[in-house]
Amino acid sequence: MNPLEARNLSFSYSERPIFSNLSFSLERGELLGLLGPNGSGKTTLFRCILGLDHRYGGDVFLEGENIRRKTPAAMARLAAYVPQAHHPSFNYTVMDMVLMGTSSGERAWAVPGSRQKAAALEALAKINFQEFHSRNFRELSGGEQQMVLIARALAQGTRILIMDEPTANLDYGNQLRLLMTISGLSRQGYSILLSTHNPDHAFLFARRVLALHNHALAAIGPPAEVLTPELIHTLYGVQVRLRRDEQGRVSSVPILEDH
């Protein structure tokens, strides 16, 4: 049983189709990279998988359970969401931010106690971030904030993580460090679906990629096999050449003909 199964997933806003007949699965301990141009429906797909929007056709199964009639609390025990870091309305400590992730397993009136604090510290420790626990979220850099949001998702206690472009707005070094952390989590057994705009991130870290284009699945498979210059051109409208280094790692180099 795969942690995540999407079967014949379709979605349209009024008459405009966003995607149709998407079928794919996320395997256990896998880092699946989701690629697709702006407006290809990545965010909508995430909303469906997370149970935030139920107006889809087809079915989504998380840990073997159809999510269509799940309450938010039940959903939160199946999959955790890592949004892009943003400026929250109020400043919270890192500890409080991560503690919020523990709410899903608790009664609505519960106030986090020592058990939840231990879980939050453990989540921070999983990504070596425990020394940040008393810092203020708003005073952290973008990369550090993203780490806190990942720890919060870990504190939720699910084995499935859905990450919406976690590397957006990060500098080059932080992008790579963050992706190494995420990749480490998949080696610890977390199943991760992560959207990215950078094919090189997929080459470096994803076990498989899922490409969305023109309301449909353009490709799914290991990046070295499916992420061809043709596919990249189809997705993004740019010509690239792929280079393979001595260790067999692939990277893309844009061909800039007009320059």
Binding site: A80, H86, P88, S89
Partner: peptide, 19 residues
């Protein structure tokens, strides 16, 4: 305690189990 979660974005709060 739940009011804390409502200060975040709606989809964020809901993904953490808040109706």
């Amino acid at each position: 305690w739940r009011i804390n979660l409502l200060t975040l974005h709606d989809e964020e709060a809901q993904s953490m189990g808040v109706n």
